[in-house]
Design a protein around this nucleic acid. Structure first.
Lengths: 226, 226
DNA sequence: GTCTATAATGAGATAGAC
DNA sequence: GTCTATCTCATTATAGAC
């Protein structure tokens, strides 16, 4: 009988306790740097349950990403679409589009609890991992769609730009975002501790104008067929 | 016979064979994803020699970075200084400064052999690793100086800019560079294989104008004491 | 300096009682 | 669904012959 599984709403399920612990550990020490023993110990469950619920370690890693990615991808997509809708009325700047793309990441990293912060770190790590590593498949497949949406919006916004310059512009933007979200502390060092990589709100504000200028330069510099 | 080994210019010494193999493996699978057995097997030397020459695995990792970093840091520094010197005569753009910073990385990744390419990948990985990881100390200490030099040059070039906007600008630039150098293949995917993350020459050309515009916008947007 | 053998520990995964 | 015990193999590091 499956009756036991149809419980109304049990408190933190064992399965989620394992994912929670895995999320934090994978985000801090990476895939190979994290052991299944550490995960289950942190989760307060016996080692055997990890295999029971997830199978292999790589399967668990995928589950960590899958758990939040659906809602997350939808939120980014909605934010982008809203920026597009507003455009019809108030004609937002390219910086507003950049902001719409980055804001859902910032919001979750700062205001949605420690689980989300760990998840965002994990995403950043996965994005900076070579495709040759087998365990990052889930990440790449899941987030490709919103990137395509954003690029389509940029093409619409800069109709005269060469397509490749739109791609390069997005590449520069997304590359910067990937390192920013890992919050490595590099700007704390270079600024002699006056600025902080954890200050994503300020980064959000600075990023709009900065990348708007960059994208505009590239997009307007070499026109289609020029 | 040992005569062959006492040759004037002995072929790759055992120590270097180990570093060579470690460089490639660390760059591809990271610190925890690489085992000392794999390294010595790849190097074609017995396992015991690794400890004999380097001590621990973390020590070896540091040696991999130290071996090339001295010459590399000097090359970047020289490139920056040259850009500054030229400025006196021809007044280069901010894009030229960006180019001077990035070009020594591109040159070594593309035209200095597979060892250098692996090393550049490794740098990028190290830069995207949280400071909490113990083994990345060597990287951060070594490259801090050239970053400071470049920032000083930007301050000189934008004397009216608020200091923090110089820091943020450099943060956006260096963050993008970090992901670009790992050559993740993300732009191959978004561009449907029309552009390539391995095409660092084109990236170098696109990067100058793009980040010049971004830095100028931020630096001129909010003046000192404004 | 080189190499073999092995110590000591930790890893992912599973079997089977409850 | 939960937990203990364990299998099997890989790991870092070292001891000691050559």
């Amino acid at each position: 009988m499956k009756a036991a599984q149809t419980n109304r709403k049990a408190d933190p399920k064992t399965k989620d306790k394992i994912i929670d612990a895995a999320e934090v550990l994978f985000s801090g020490k990476g895939y190979y740097g994290t052991t299944t023993r550490e995960i289950t110990r942190q989760a307060g469950v016996p080692l055997g349950l990890m295999s029971y619920y997830f199978g292999t370690k790589a399967d668990l890693y995928s589950e960590v990403i899958i758990r939040r990615s659906k809602e997350h991808v939808a939120a980014i997509s909605a934010s982008i679409k809203q920026a597009k809708a507003v455009r019809g009325e108030a004609s937002p700047t390219a910086g507003d589009l950049v902001r719409a793309y980055f804001a859902p990441l910032v919001k979750r990293s700062l205001h949605s609890g420690p689980g989300w912060k760990a998840y965002i770190h994990l995403l950043s790590r996965a994005a900076n991992t070579p495709r040759s590593e087998p365990y990052v498949g889930a990440f790449n497949e899941t987030y490709a769609s919103v990137n395509d949406e954003f690029i389509a919006l940029l093409k619409e916004y800069f109709p005269d730009a060469a397509e490749e310059d739109i791609y390069w512009s997005f590449y520069f933007l997304s590359s910067a975002i990937i390192h920013i979200l890992v919050e490595s502390g590099s700007i704390d060092e270079t600024s002699k501790n006056t600025l902080h990589s954890s200050d994503l709100e300020t980064i959000l504000d600075k990023m709009g104008p900065f990348f708007e200028a960059g994208i505009s330069r590239l997009a307007n510099g070499h026109k289609k067929g020029g």
